[in-house]
Amino acid sequence: MIAFDDLMPGQVVVLGPTGASRDEVLAFARAYDPQPFHLSDEAASQTYFGRLSASGWHTGALMLDLLINNPDWPLACRGCHEIRDLRWRAPVYPDDRLSARVTVIDCDVPEAQGAGRVTLDLLLSNQDDATVAQMTAVLAVARRI
């Protein structure tokens, strides 16, 4: 596990790829964001998306999943304190391949309960290296002690 004590400001890691199939995009939209352009190609063709696109909330969830459930960088996350400056920069389409560039911004004084606060900048890009989303996350990360 990657612990609070293993992190330092300026550290960068690239995680991924991940993505969502057409069925996953539709299932998420039906459950959580039933806007027409997330539910059909026909409705999306009338918008700047041009075709069925993933919900921004689905995109954010994929980004967090890369951060929290990644076997290549198993971060010992103990909770998320806040998300700052979440921005959707470009649509995510079914079967896009997404990767996250994670930069450690700050490692605060350790908290009680054996964790420390870590501020991370996350930049999510697709297979064409276009930025599709970005955010800053403040997480509690377990200490080694």
Rank of each mutant, 00 (worst) to 15 (best):
I2K: 00
A3D: 05
F4N: 13
F4G: 10
L7I: 01
L7H: 01
L7K: 00
G10A: 05
Q11I: 02
Q11A: 12
V12Q: 13
V12S: 06
T18M: 07
A20K: 00
S21D: 09
S21W: 03
R22Y: 01
L26C: 08
F28R: 00
Q35N: 11
Q35H: 13
F37G: 10
L39Y: 06
S40Q: 10
S40V: 06
D41Y: 05
E42M: 07
E42A: 12
S45N: 09
Q46K: 10
Q46E: 14
Q46H: 12
Q46I: 04
T47A: 07
T47Y: 02
Y48F: 04
F49N: 02
F49P: 07
G50V: 11
L52C: 08
S53Y: 05
S53C: 15
S53N: 12
G56E: 11
W57C: 04
H58Q: 15
H58P: 14
T59Y: 03
A61K: 07
A61P: 09
L62C: 10
L62N: 08
M63C: 12
L67I: 06
P71V: 06
P71H: 00
D72C: 09
W73I: 08
L75H: 00
A76S: 10
C77P: 03
C77G: 09
R78W: 02
R78Q: 13
R78L: 10
G79E: 09
C80G: 15
H81Y: 03
H81M: 10
I83M: 13
I83T: 06
R84P: 01
R84N: 14
R84E: 07
D85K: 06
D85P: 01
W88C: 03
W88P: 04
R89K: 13
R89F: 01
R89Y: 00
A90I: 01
P91M: 06
V92A: 07
Y93W: 08
Y93S: 14
Y93I: 10
D95H: 07
D96N: 11
D96P: 08
R97S: 14
R97L: 13
R97M: 08
L98T: 04
L98F: 01
L98Y: 03
L98E: 05
S99D: 10
A100K: 12
A100S: 15
A100N: 14
I105C: 05
I105E: 14
D106T: 12
C107E: 03
D108S: 13
P110A: 06
A112P: 15
G114P: 15
A115I: 11
R117D: 04
R117L: 15
V118L: 13
V118Q: 09
V118A: 12
T119L: 14
L120Q: 11
L120P: 02
D121V: 00
D121E: 12
L122A: 11
N126K: 05
Q127N: 14
Q127D: 15
D128I: 00
D128F: 01
A130H: 14
A130T: 10
A130W: 03
A133Y: 03
Q134P: 01
M135Q: 15
M135T: 13
M135W: 01
M135F: 02
M135L: 14
T136Y: 01
T136A: 05
V138K: 05
V141G: 04
V141E: 07
R144V: 05
I145K: 08
I145R: 12
I145T: 15
